[in-house]
Computed example of a mutant assay.
Amino acid sequence: MITVNAMGDNCPIPVIKTKKAMQEITGPETIEVLVDNEIAVQNVTKMAVSSGGNVTSEKLGEKEFKVTIQMNGAVAKEAGEEAVCTPDRKGDTIVVIASDKMGSGNDELGKVLIKGFIFAVTQLEELPKAMIFYNGGATLTAEGSDSLEDLKSLEAQGVEILTCGTCLNYYGLTDKLEVGSVTNMYTIVEKMAEAGKIIQP
């Protein structure tokens, strides 16, 4: 395990430090990068993915984020994107998820599809501004969900993760929320009304 401390560093320093650590490894290795802002998470993530890394990220606290990069081996010196500062990747799209399944037909297949959908959101060039979960979708942000790693990665990159409080209470999950924050119907309506585009799987 290699730890890169880029807390307090302005762009492009976190990317440069991470790239240097990646180029020094000789075999399979895990690199943890600590940064203090969402834009740094986005920039480090983009560079690491372009270099062949498997990347996840997590918000540890206010202005405290961890990006974990799994590398299979050494990286070519010229690999990866240049250490540049890119603007915030978030647009004004809202993703609304109302079920723990995607589509109708086979429930088991539906659960596989919704997990794949959430992972696909993490790969978008322009991330959504927020993701809202209600009714059965509320279970996806709670303990036991297969999508927690992907949702925590999105949250670390600045995507607002909101779950209906009434729904959590109905399913007995009020104390089991694992990512994002609890919201109410007024905020859900407000967010959807302000959105430039709404995606609902």
Rank of each mutant, 00 (worst) to 15 (best):
I16V: 14
D100R: 09
C85K: 10
V15N: 00
V112S: 04
D92T: 13
K19H: 12
P14A: 05
I31H: 05
A193E: 14
E24Y: 09
V4G: 02
K46N: 14
T45A: 11
A74R: 12
N5T: 06
R89M: 15
N72W: 01
E194R: 03
N72G: 14
I118R: 00
A120V: 08
T26L: 10
V159H: 06
P12C: 03
K46H: 14
V159D: 01
V49P: 07
K115R: 13
V33T: 09
P128H: 06
V179D: 03
Y186P: 00
F133L: 08
A83D: 13
K17Y: 01
D146G: 05
T56P: 03
T141Y: 00
G8K: 03
S153D: 13
E78L: 10
K115V: 10
K46Y: 12
E125V: 12
E155H: 05
I13F: 08
L168Q: 06
V67E: 04
K77R: 12
T183A: 00
I25K: 00
V112W: 01
E178V: 02
G103H: 07
L162E: 12
M47Q: 13
Y134H: 11
K152E: 14
N43D: 14
L60I: 11
A21V: 06
V189R: 02
G27L: 02
G137I: 10
Y186W: 10
L148T: 08
S51W: 04
A195G: 04
S99D: 10
T141C: 03
S181F: 05
E78H: 11
G110T: 05
D107Y: 10
T122V: 08
S104E: 15
S153G: 12
E155A: 15
G73S: 15
T3R: 10
I25N: 00
Q23N: 13
I97F: 03
K17C: 02
N43L: 02
E178F: 02
K20D: 13
C164S: 08
K111P: 06
V182K: 15
K115S: 15
E143R: 14
F133D: 03
G91H: 04
M192Y: 00
T163H: 09
A195N: 08
L162H: 12
E108H: 06
L148W: 05
T183M: 01
I25Q: 01
A83T: 15
P14M: 05
N135I: 13
G172F: 09
M47N: 15
N184C: 06
K59N: 11
D92S: 12
V33M: 07
K152I: 11
A120R: 14
V121H: 01
